[in-house]
Amino acid sequence: MDSRPADPMSTATTASTAATIRHRSVAPEEADIRLDRWFRRHFPRLTQGALQKMLRTGQVRVDGRRAEASTRLRPGQQIRIPPLPEGPPTEAQRGAPRPVSPEDARLLERMVLYRDDSVIALNKPYGLAVQGGPGLTRHLDAMLGALRFGHAERPRLVHRLDRDTSGVLLLARGAAAASKLAAAFRGRDAEKTYWAVVVGRPSPESGRIDLPLAKQPGPRGERTTPAEGGTRAITDYRVLDAAQRRAAWLELRPLTGRTHQLRVHCARGLGTPILGDGKYGGAAAQIEGLPPLLHLHARALRLPHPEGGMLEVAAPLPPHMEQTFAFLGFDRPRAPPPRRTPR
């Protein structure tokens, strides 16, 4: 306890400032959201520049620690909120979802792999961002109102995929389902299976990559790199097929969920970058005659269903990976139908 006497000249100012500092908990359905997007959602009048200044000066903190705009949040964390601009936001600042065009509504409905009263599973296409960001106005989160299917609430994101990663993406239809699904992802009860086409052929053809990772700033944006003092990242892998030493089809099972984990583990852990991954593989990630697009697909997801039992969902390959599989002579197995089974 601080027993120093208060400065009478500053008492009023200190009391006024303290009165406007707030703390708010991260909700279960906000798991894995970026800190700047969390502020944009709750305080739409706050500009990105003002937030960056508050972060640099330590006015905004997460669980008492300094944080960055890109910090991913976990449910239950405490956000320190300094005094912010007062007054109601404008219509644009409120961030109210724009009406979804009929074309986008039809696109989203075609993406649905499975739905019930608690869950919707989508097959997210390559190139569609899950959440917004600077200069990004078209993203899945802004269009979820088209997937109510008679519910009063729009579905909620409980995890995410990178813009250029295709495949199974799960949505929750309500706060209770979101809380349970987010807990499954945090507690590693969700079994995730990815398919990737890599340039080269790993040796050995199956194993575990245990390579810690850290985020590093760079002239072209943030990158994830191997680092001795980084956060532990683990991926199990196996070769499902190969075209001599030219390329291989891998099954990847991440046991942790670090940013760009699979891309870095393939490029730096195995020495076989994912086809089309210019960020982590450069020119070595290209094969002449094949699409220069990222060949990473969230093939399947198995996790506890919010209402009991286990839910298993698989997604068919995106068109560019179908083309590559045909070119390389790989089998193209059909995605099994979704199913919900007892534990």
Rank of each mutant, 00 (worst) to 15 (best):
G308V: 00
R339S: 14
P336Q: 14
T14M: 14
P202Y: 06
S16V: 10
D331E: 15
R253Y: 08
V198L: 05
R94L: 12
L301E: 03
L262R: 05
G282D: 05
R74A: 12
V100K: 05
S203D: 15
I81N: 07
P292W: 04
A243G: 10
R332E: 07
T193C: 03
L293N: 14
G132A: 07
T256P: 09
L328E: 06
L144A: 07
R246V: 08
E312D: 04
A196N: 06
E228R: 10
T17A: 10
H42N: 07
G87R: 02
I274G: 08
Q78F: 00
G95F: 03
E191I: 03
V100E: 05
P291G: 13
T20S: 08
K53E: 11
L181F: 01
P8K: 12
T137P: 01
S179C: 10
I21S: 02
P125R: 00
A248S: 15
A178G: 06
I274A: 03
R201F: 12
W195K: 10
A177M: 05
L317D: 00
A15L: 13
T225W: 01
L250P: 10
R56E: 07
F39S: 08
F43H: 15
A27M: 04
P44R: 10
Q261N: 06
A233C: 04
T165A: 11
S16D: 13
G229H: 11
W195T: 06
G167K: 06
R238A: 12
I79Q: 11
S16W: 10
E91P: 02
I79H: 06
G145W: 00
P28A: 08
F330Q: 09
G221Q: 02
D2K: 05
A242V: 08
A6D: 08
R110Q: 15
D331N: 13
G95H: 00
L262Y: 14
A233M: 08
R343V: 00
P28V: 07
T90R: 06
P291A: 15
R232E: 12
H295M: 12
V198D: 02
F325D: 02
P212R: 04
V100N: 00
Q59G: 04
V313W: 04
P102I: 03
D117E: 15
V158Q: 01
A190V: 06
D236P: 03
G309V: 02
Q52C: 05
P273M: 06
K279S: 02
H305V: 03
R332F: 01
T13D: 09
P44W: 11
